[in-house]
């Protein structure tokens, strides 16, 4: 692997999950979730706490990361989002309410890091998680394991959405909430599951990202523009588009920084976030519906022998 690729794969897998989380919650509940930032940070701190207090590799704590993230999503839905949805709040109100929730979570993360510092004499405000990783074929093992975990997670999600009755009901509600309600599908339960899955995805994504970058209490706040950029690049209407968008944004950042720094010097590092955001802007100028709207995706579908009219 080239030097940027191993870290890029880890980071892009994390961004793919967080962008997927943003998209899933948006297409089900119309809520652009700012709390994804702190959800991701919480995911990182759950894996960090596990490694520091109980030892072993970070990977074995990922089930807990997903559970805690899901609980954070569940609380956001029951404590906030559900009441606003029932009152048919505008999208801007829904979005700003999650910003408030994010600030509450951020404060709790700060308190938790203080607790770790005072009680266990740790330094949780700047953490390099990849020192707890091992090497595989001369690379960080995370470069192989994390994309694999992300693919397994997303395949599981795909199976859930296409093969289970409730999963199909979720897709039906996403497409047409009125008709789904008239069919007897409980939209309340669909929204709850979207928040639970979205919370778990965001937390797992955060735990991944911390394997490539320094973990801090404000880690999520720094990366949130890229999480949203991934979701927007994916077209916002398509879960798979959002996941692909997050991955493309992550890989572009690492590849762009590496090659541009080689060509123009290390000062480029200061503008690393601008590279994927420029890619997003250019893509949207050419394809306003994002990656999901690129005819090439349909073309691949046709080449794969799918029937006419299949959407990516």
């Amino acid at each position: 692997m080239t030097p940027w690729m191993s870290s890029g794969l880890i980071y892009a897998s994390g961004l793919a999950l967080t962008a997927g989380s943003v998209t899933l919650i948006y297409i089900t509940t119309r809520t652009f979730n700012f709390a994804v930032a702190s959800m991701a940070t919480i995911g990182f701190y759950v894996s960090y706490t596990g490694v520091i207090l109980y030892g072993g590799l970070p990977y074995k704590y990922y089930p807990f990361v997903i559970i805690i993230g899901s609980i954070v999503g569940l609380i956001c839905y029951y404590g906030l989002n559900r009441h606003l949805l029932r009152r048919r709040a505008a999208e801007i109100t829904l979005m700003m309410s999650t910003l408030g929730y994010d600030l509450v979570l951020l404060s709790m993360i700060q308190m938790y890091t203080d607790f770790l510092t005072k009680t266990y004499k740790l330094f949780p405000r700047r953490v390099t998680m990849n020192i707890y990783d091992f090497e595989l074929f001369g690379e960080k093992a995370a470069a192989f394991i994390l994309p694999f975990i992300a693919i397994v997670f997303l395949m599981g999600l795909h199976m859930f959405l296409t093969k289970t009755k409730f999963g199909v009901a979720m897709r039906a509600t996403i497409e047409n909430p009125v008709l789904a309600g008239a069919s007897g599908i409980n939209s309340d339960r669909v929204y709850l599951v979207a928040w639970v899955i979205g919370g778990g995805m965001a937390a797992l994504g955060g735990a991944f990202i911390a394997m490539a970058q320094t973990g801090t209490p404000v880690m999520g706040m720094f990366i949130i523009p890229l999480m949203f950029a991934g979701a927007i690049l994916g077209g916002l209407g398509s879960l798979y588009g959002g996941i692909l968008g997050g991955f493309v944004i992550g890989m572009t950042e690492y590849a762009g920084v590496f090659y541009l720094a080689q060509r123009f010097g290390p000062w480029v590092l200061g503008y690393r976030m601008g590279i994927p955001l420029m890619l997003m802007a250019i893509t949207l100028l050419i394809f306003p519906r994002g990656l999901a709207g690129i005819p090439l995706v349909k073309l691949f579908g046709l080449l794969a022998g799918k029937k006419r009219g299949v959407n990516a």
């Binding site: 199909v168 897709r171 039906a172 497409e175 047409n176 009125v178 008709l179 789904a180 008239a182 959407n311």
Partner: peptide
């Protein structure tokens, strides 16, 4: 049976 959007087009 609504006037518009009376089927799930993607299913």
């Amino acid at each position: 049976v609504p006037q518009m959007g009376n089927v799930f087009a993607e299913l």
